[in-house]
């Protein structure tokens, strides 16, 4: 049981590291604010959540149940706040006047300008 938890935690942490690495590559390589935001949100949503899940499994492997519950609570709060923050940043960028690069159709502008149905 304990060994299984230990292996699971290693798998989760490796997946989290992969997400973090991919988001770093995305932040460096993507062209404009919105795509970079898309990449950097994954660093927290994917990477940090996976690493926290791995930490929770590792705490469970050693029988430290309070630590596991605390870690899962931290993960839940990250899950609640991180999409919120990136949504607010993206919206603020749009209303600041940054045009998405290479877009053809801007439905949000049509919705904002009128015929809000």
């Amino acid at each position: 049981m304990s060994a299984m938890f230990f292996g699971l935690s290693t798998v989760f942490m490796a997946a989290g590291l992969f997400f973090a690495f991919a988001s770093v590559v995305g932040v460096i390589r993507f062209p404009d604010v919105y795509t970079r935001l898309h990449a950097s949100t994954k660093a927290l949503s994917g990477g940090a959540m996976m690493i926290l899940a791995g930490t929770a499994f590792r705490a469970a492997a050693t029988g430290n149940w309070p630590a596991m519950v605390k870690t899962l609570l931290i993960a839940a709060f990250l899950l609640a706040t991180n999409p919120l923050a990136s949504h607010a940043i993206a919206r603020a960028c749009y209303h600041h006047g940054i045009v998405p690069k290479g877009t053809v159709i801007d439905e949000y502008a049509e919705t904002v300008r009128g015929d809000r149905s």
Partner: peptide, 16 residues
């Protein structure tokens, strides 16, 4: 303030 999504979710988080 900000959009409806942010307002509503922050209302759930402020008590915590």
């Amino acid at each position: 303030g900000l959009s409806f999504i942010v307002k509503r979710s922050m209302a759930l988080l402020v008590p915590f």
